[in-house]
């Protein structure tokens, strides 16, 4: 195997193993920690794909903000009871069914992906010449401005919703 192949193999195997570790932990905090390691590996894969900006954002947003909030909530809830509950509940069949449906969808989507498509405008060289951040910024604020703004509004709605819910309890 060549070096890139080895590199990819390591990340692919590790991401799978870490995902399994994450969902099988009894202690939710340990689950979150494996997820942190998982995110770091996903960031590594992004760097491997020459998407260094995405890798940094992956760590800053997911590991730095979202996962810390997860930890915060889990620690405050004190889920000691969860650790003693049996791993297989009576509705495990529903879970398996959902999983299979999701797997079928994923496989059918992955099969449609062309492995070596016609190269578009944004080749690795073009992105490198202009810089990662510049390229993403230009595309995001021109071609995809509307979807970007819609996403911002959706996030704003969520923030306002959270504030409203938090306010209610005080009154």
């Amino acid at each position: 195997m060549t070096a890139p192949q080895l590199f990819f193999a390591y990340f692919a195997v590790m991401i799978t193993v870490l995902s399994l570790l994450m969902i099988t932990r009894r202690n939710p905090v340990h689950g979150v920690l494996w997820m942190l390691v998982l995110f770091v590996h996903i960031a590594g894969l992004y760097i491997f794909l020459n998407a260094e900006f995405l890798a940094a954002i992956q760590i800053i947003v997911y590991a730095g903000a979202i996962l810390v909030l997860f930890l915060f909530v889990i620690m405050l809830l004190n889920l000691k009871k969860e650790e003693t509950v049996k791993k297989f509940q009576k509705h495990w069949l529903v879970g398996v069914g959902t999983g299979i449906i999701f797997a079928v969808f994923s496989v059918s989507i992955v099969r449609k992906i062309e492995v070596f498509p016609q190269l578009g405008k944004y080749t690795i060289e073009a992105v490198k010449a202009e810089g990662n951040i510049m390229t993403v910024g230009k595309v995001l604020y021109t071609k995809y401005l509307l979807p970007f703004e819609i996403a911002s509004v959706i996030l704003l709605v969520a923030i306002i919703g959270a504030v409203v819910l938090a306010k209610k309890r005080i009154e």
Partner: peptide
């Protein structure tokens, strides 16, 4: 690296 500042922010969050 080109994302020096972002790298620093990422490490401070880790």
């Amino acid at each position: 690296i080109n994302i020096g500042i972002l790298y620093l922010l990422a490490l401070s969050s880790i």
